[in-house]
Amino acid sequence: MKATRVGYWRADSVEAALGALRSAAGSAQLLAGGQSLVASLNLRLADETNLIDINGLTELEGVSDEGDRIRVGALTRHRTLETAPLVASSAPALAEAAVLIAHAAIRTRGTLGGSLAYADPAAELPACMVALEADIVARSADDRRRIPAESFFEGLFQTALAEDEMIEAVEVPKAGPLERQVVLELARRSGDYAMVGLVLRADVEGHALARSRIAYFGLGAVPVLARGAMSALEAGDLDAAVAALAQDLDPPSDLHASAEYRLHLAGVLLRRAVARARAEGGST
């Protein structure tokens, strides 16, 4: 299929892009990596639209050290998350998640900001943001605000971004010395959207997990924080944590898996993630 007709404009600065976004008043969208957007244009899933291409805005790319946090620009490609040393040391979940995204030729184009703004519930990076308590830095022509990841994802392909806002960057707290981050997913084939995935972050000491956060993807309209399981883990009861998932999660049934199967897999992944975190934390 060939794309529906589109209008195109290449932004030469962030300010210009934001100005265009505001004046388009909902009739335009940002084109970042385009790895989901162009596919949907080609499939004629999208109506006629106008595209503001921000790919040339290099100031939106890159990873920087901000003291107790790292800042990752919205245009940072998945490939950079895979390979940047600062990501590996400070937010290893992002690197682990990045290699799970599709395939090499997509990761060279796909961007962090694009993935978050698209808000596919089966995507890895939104769940990483929620698990790692990242802030999404949203910017409009006259404002900049930090949105906690937990409140950023509002529904299926819906975010807290206003019509005239774009993601400028995310800020992720640096992992502490005891912190372990684990990303696990189950996909039928390597690179496919996962049927179920989770991001676990916890401070691991011996057998004990503290400050644990568990965000699931592929299990709802948005990344789901498994609060019941988190508090059970905090109490050191893995069985109770798995049992709590039945309350924490309300997964959908679709072509690839039933709700019941997804819930079952969520428990399997939790056990595996905790085992790995403990192993990496030096415990067995």
Binding site: L43, R188, R189, S190, G191, D192, Y193, L255, H256
Partner: peptide, 14 residues
Amino acid sequence: NANMADYLVPMAAE
């Protein structure tokens, strides 16, 4: 599932 993402053909990794 009339698309390559939902109709699963065998790929190299598996």
